[in-house]
Amino acid sequence: MAMDTSQLLKGVLDLAVLAVLRDTDGYGYDVLRRLRAAGLEDVADASVYGTLRRLFAAGALTSYVQPSEEGPHRKYYGLNKTGLDLLAQSTKTWNHFADTMSVLLQEEAA
């Protein structure tokens, strides 16, 4: 069975969202666009919004409303201390996991 990116995404969406918010705060659609621009085209719209709400509920994100020139106000999300810690920790976990997988796959290929 071929591997499906959308299946993989489910496990790492938190990390991906935290990553695109690391440097600049963004509203929901911003986050979605940044993920797509980074190459995660398969990400489902609703799941990004859900993830933002969950990270916010977990205390990893701040949220504030800003009026926009083009119309209604927008709710921005940004990383707070907890979010930055979570990002660092998750990055470590991911790297470790990715390294393990890479080694595993290289061994298999060799």
Binding site: A46, S47, V48, G50
Partner: peptide, 18 residues
């Protein structure tokens, strides 16, 4: 573009951990 409202809500619910 987004699926049915029900699919959208389900996806949101799952991702948000509701």
């Amino acid at each position: 573009r987004l699926g049915t409202p029900s699919q959208y809500a389900d996806e949101l619910r799952r991702a948000a951990g509701y």
